[in-house]
Each structure stands twice: as structure tokens, then as C-alpha cells.
Write a protein that binds this DNA or RNA. Sequence first.
DNA 1: TCCCTGACTGGTT
DNA 2: AAACCAGCCAGGG
Length: 113
Amino acid sequence: MSDQAQEREGRWQAFYRVIRRIPKGRVATYGQIAELAGFPRHARQVGYALHALGRSKPRVPWQRVINAQGEVSQRSAPDGDRLQRAILEAEGIVFGGNGRVDLERYGWRPRRR
DNA sequence: TCCCTGACTGGTT
DNA sequence: AAACCAGCCAGGG
């Protein structure tokens, strides 16, 4: 495998590792994941890595990652976002009337690392 | 190899 | 509040 392919693989794995640490009943933003993984400003790549998960069995709680506005991001797949919201609500997260999650209340705030 | 399209974000206008 | 814009970078045509 080429060096750069390995590097990209490592970047995505780093994202997944961070996402696996998000506790049930909490959410994190794409930018936050990138930052914690050691790749600041790579929020878009986090979205891309998550999109790539779609074609395999995720061992990653992808549903806990939302955008910086506190909303579930839209996808190309029609009902993907609806499903995500349903799962989060089942985990105890409450959406406001504007369809947003209150990040002050439900945002993940990891201690250290 | 160039060009386009994304599960994004923070700063400027 | 809303539109724009520059960083990011993988995959497919």
C-alpha cells in the first residue's frame, strides 16, 4: 500500500476512534471530531469518512455526529437523516421545535486527551 | 490529470 | 440573517 493511502487510512481510523468514545445520549460535531483526532479544520473529511461507512457494517456510532448548528445533516440517501434522528431520540436526545439539538445540553465534552 | 461534487466550518461581507 | 468564501481532500468521470 502506498504511503499516502496509508496516511489517509490512518486519518479515517483516527476519526472512527474518536467517534467510538462518544457516550450514548451525547452528540459531537464534525469539526469537534476532526479536532480531537488531531486534524483541525478537516470537518468535511469526517463527513466523507462517515459517508464511506455506509457500505459496510459500522462499528461506529455514526448517529452521534451532527453539524455545528446542532442539526442532523442531509445526505444523498433519502431517509438517512430521518433514521439518524430516530436513533438519537431513542437514546434520549430531545430535538427542539426548530429541529435542532441543544449542544449546551447534549454536546459531548470529553475530559482530557 | 483536470473537474466536480460532497454526512463541514468559521470568518467576512 | 443570509450569502459568500477559503480551507480541507476522496472518488469518479
